[in-house]
């Protein structure tokens, strides 16, 4: 049981790091603000989500070992994820709107769309 929880937790932490890495690469490599926002948004939901899942599993392990105060840690982690679910899309939306209001035209592939 312990081993399984630990392994699961590490797998999800590594998955979170992977998504973070992909998101970062996207921010660096993609051509304009909107596509970059797409990558950054994935970092927030998938990357941070998996990282928090890994931490939750570690906390569950602690609780199974009789650490009663770790319930608070679990509660806080869940709260953090809930707030991330709210703030991340809203921030991305605000940034995209600001870009549009600032007159940044969305990037299109050369020879695609505009003739």
């Amino acid at each position: 049981m312990d081993m399984a929880l630990d392994a699961l937790s590490w797998i999800s932490i590594v998955a979170g790091l992977f998504f973070m890495l992909v998101g970062t690469l996207g921010v660096l490599r993609l051509p304009d603000i909107y596509t970059r926002l797409h990558a950054a948004g994935m970092t927030d939901t998938m990357g941070a989500g998996f990282l928090i899942l890994g931490m939750v599993l570690q906390t569950v392990q602690g609780i199974l070992h009789g650490e009663s105060t770790w319930w608070f840690v679990l509660f806080r982690l869940v709260l953090i994820y809930v707030f991330l679910l709210f703030t991340s899309p809203i921030a991305s939306h605000a940034l995209a709107r600001a870009g549009l209001a600032g007159g940044v035209a969305p990037w299109t592939a050369p020879g695609d769309g505009d003739e």
Binding site: F83, F86, T87, P89, I90, H93, A94, R97
Partner: peptide, 16 residues
């Protein structure tokens, strides 16, 4: 028309 921003702010402000 900034519905998402307005609603989001209204939801988040009390929690902040």
């Amino acid at each position: 028309d900034r519905v998402i921003l307005r609603i989001g702010t209204k939801i988040l402000s009390p929690f902040i």
